[in-house]
Design a binder for these strands. Sequence first.
DNA 1: TAGCAGGAAAATC
DNA 2: GATTTTCCTGCT
Length: 304
Amino acid sequence: MEFTVALNTPFSLEHTLGSGQLFRWERRGEWWFGVVSGAGFKVRQEGDTLRCSSGSDLVDNTFVTNYFRLDEDLDHILASIAKDEEITKAIEKFYGLRLVRQDPWECLGSFVLATNANIPRIKKMVSSVCSRYGEPTQFEGDTYHAFPNPEILSKASVPDLRGLGLGYRAPFLKHVAKSVAEGKVDFSRMPSLSYDKSQELLLTELFGEKLLLGVGPKVADCVLLYSLGKDEAFPIDVWIARVLAKSYPHLLPKSLRSRLLADLKFKLSIQEYRRASSSIRSHFGMFAGYAQQYLYMAAREDSV
DNA sequence: TAGCAGGAAAATC
DNA sequence: GATTTTCCTGCT
């Protein structure tokens, strides 16, 4: 099914799909190819128009508007986070970048694989898992694979997952798949809860006494921000930690500040992560997650 | 809490 | 071609 979406709001497909919140989009010429709702999909931006083609009737104008959050006032959001020179520069460079509403399970499964890896590698791992376990679907003569459902992955063997290059992440992925498949993780409850409550729920309550294997506050923040609408979530990865050390030292606890400045290979403890996250969230406000995404893009661009 | 294992591809030198 | 880095968590 082919259709167009008229944009009456700032949007950059390029910045959005290339922003590191998603791992399954691939650009071929002017078109971006992906799999959404289990079907092949392609999209390109022509000024104020998104030209779309989908292998499923379920993916229509309404779906795309919701997926890219085109019903939200981006200028209002950006104005609310433009608190300092650093973020203002990032907004100018990547204007039109939007957070996307991903499927929560795919988001969780993907970010469990993201530890100690870089983006090309994460994409490769996610792609391998999809090819091996995902439902195949035809689109424009090519075969695509959906992200496998949790039931399938929960039954995958760990050695088989390791064979896909996941390494130590293999048992983690199987474990989260099992938790979701068994209904221990109920994503549907989280949108109505506060950021703090939903993070607590995701990290502890639904997983019993023990923390969910392979999911700490960083992965939880990614899932909350990219798929559950918690716009104040501020995932702190190594790039963002560097940004904080360089440009926002005044927002960090003193003990952490000196360590960050002295040692670039610092590692945040879980408590340090929480303190830094809390402080940065009170600086940027209820849309801190957008600030994180713009700062992340700017930090990566500077390094290239 | 500090230190380290885990694990392999990509970036860098 | 070797070394360092890489969107991290869990264990000791």
